[in-house]
Every structure is written in C-alpha cells, then in structure tokens.
C-alpha cells in the first residue's frame, strides 16, 4: 500500500481534528460522564451526590428483571440481525437481476431506511393494533386465535423485531447491492460456462465474495439493534406486555428518564457498552476468520 507523506507536520492532525472532536464530544465525554454517574446515587434534582461504589451494579446483578432485559436484548438483536441481513441479501440478489423498472425498485427498497423509527412504529400500529389495526381484522376471518400483543409477549416481540428489521432493511440492501455489483462478471460467466446451477453459483461464488459486506453488516446491525432500536419499542409496545419487549436500552431509558434513577441508568449504560464492545470484539475474533477479502 502506498503511504501518504504530508509535507507539513501539523496538517494530518488538523485533518483528523473534526472527526476527533465529534468522537470526543459525542462519545468519550458522555461515556466518561456515565462511568462517573454509575458509582453515585443522586436525587433527581441533584445537590447531594453520594458515592456508593459498585452498589448500582450489584443491585442490577441481583435483579431478575435486569437479566430478563438482557435476554430480551439478545433475542431481539439476533432476530433483527438475522432477519434484516438475510432478508436484505435475498432482496438485493433479486434487485440485482436484469428486470424492467429496476431503478424504481432499487429506490423504493431504500425508502424504509429514511423513515424515522417512531414513525415506522406508528405505521405498524395501524396495521397490527388489536383494537384498530387492519391485519387483526382480516385475520379474524381466517383464525379464531387472537394475536393480541397487548397481552401475548411472544407476539409483541415478533412484532417489534419485524418492525425494526423492516426499517433497517434498506440499509442492508444498499450495501449488498454494492457488494454484488463488485463481483466480476467474468467469474459468474465462467461458472455458467461450467454449467453451475443458480443456487450453486450463489453459495459457491456470491456468498464468499460478499462475505466482507456480510460481516460488516452483521456487526453494524448487532450494534444498531442493541443501541438504536429504542424508537420502535417506545412507539409500539413500551416494553410490555409485562416486560416481554423491554430490552436493555429501553430499560435504561425508562429507569433514567421516567424513573429518574440516574445512578442505575448510568450503570446500565456502562454494562450495555461493555456487552456491545465485547460482542464486537468476539465477532472480529471468530467471524472475521471466515471472511475472504
């Protein structure tokens, strides 16, 4: 690789400064503040911060509900990542064919990503709500089973996974499309000449060649599902029924902003940060070995 050499000593630092500033202001500073808050107990209006050491953490580790939210997070993240990465790949392969109206399809497929999570949640509410949704109305003709996610936890979880995956699908499709188009046509043609069936071409050529993209998307989708999936859950289930859809990021928001328990909320965000950093490192260690660049 060619090394760029800057004639001026300070220019390279100046060039990375904006990015550094953004990272410090929006990541390191809040993260440090969370770390600080997580070892204090403080009344909402402040004034008397009391150092409590690791009390906030031990209280969480003794709380059964916290483990439930961790479990929910993993179910949710795996569901969203699986669905939106596999779904994204399938749709991208279809959208990579030579079909009429391709430009329109490709654009339309990206739209859901432009929709704010809260708005997506409201759209899903209109479709799925047991009291005024259109789908339960039609389902009631087909089956007597009530998909009432206001009471049934697994239906609620399925619903938020579907809604979140849908909003994130466009992002994945865009990356997969780019990856697919980077596959040299000659390789595909050679396979066709050798008489490989389409499925074989897909598993033997496409999948390995886009593995860097897949790997990147799995990591990003996991992080997304753990951190930024708050909007849909807030709009649709609010963590319920019971605590069936209360994932870690929702619980820490609820405890901090609704419950005004800043210490516990900060401790939860520290744990969440550790979990996500750990997961990402694990993915780099384990999964990256299967990636062919």
């Amino acid at each position: 690789m060619k090394r760029t050499v800057f004639p001026n000593r300070w220019l390279p630092y100046l060039l990375v400064l904006p990015q550094l500033a953004v990272t410090i202001v929006f990541f390191f500073w809040p993260a440090a503040k969370s770390l600080y808050l997580s070892v204090f107990k403080s009344p909402p209006f402040g004034g008397r911060d009391v150092f409590v050491g690791l009390d906030n953490f031990t209280a969480l580790l003794r709380d059964r509900e916290y483990y439930e939210s961790v479990l929910n997070s993993f179910v949710f993240a795996l569901g969203v990542t699986g669905l939106s990465v596999v779904g994204g790949l399938v749709i991208a392969v279809l959208a990579n064919q030579k079909i009429r109206g391709l430009a329109f399809y490709r654009t339309a497929l990206l739209w859901p990503y432009g929709i704010a999570p809260a708005v997506a949640g409201i759209i899903f509410l209109f479709i799925f709500h047991p009291a005024y949704g259109i789908l339960p109305y039609f389902l009631s003709f087909v089956t007597a089973y009530e998909f009432n996610w206001l009471l049934k936890g697994w239906v609620a979880m399925t619903l938020v996974i579907l809604a979140t995956s849908w909003t994130h699908l466009g992002y994945n499709i865009a990356f997969f499309l780019a990856g697919l188009q980077a596959i040299p046509a000659s390789v595909m043609e050679a396979a066709s000449v050798d008489g490989a069936p389409p499925l074989k071409k897909f598993t033997a050529i496409t999948v390995p060649l886009i593995s860097p993209v897949t790997f990147y998307l799995v990591v990003v989708n996991m992080v997304f599902a753990f951190f930024s999936s708050f909007g849909v859950i807030h709009a649709v289930t609010h963590g319920g029924p019971g605590n069936a859809t209360e994932i870690m990021v929702f619980k820490l928001w609820k405890d901090g902003f609704i419950g005004l328990n800043l210490g516990s909320s900060a401790a939860q965000s520290v744990i969440l940060m550790a979990v996500v950093i750990g997961l990402t490192m694990l993915q780099f260690r384990v999964a990256e070995k299967r990636v062919t660049y």
């Binding site: 206001l150 009471l151 049934k152 936890g153 319920g240 029924p241 019971g242 605590n243």
Partner: peptide
C-alpha cells in the same frame, strides 16, 4: 401494570 398483564395473559 406489568404484573396485571402477567396475570391477564
């Protein structure tokens, strides 16, 4: 309300 839901379901 969570526990009411746990009872009702």
């Amino acid at each position: 309300e969570s526990e009411l839901e746990n009872v009702f379901n």
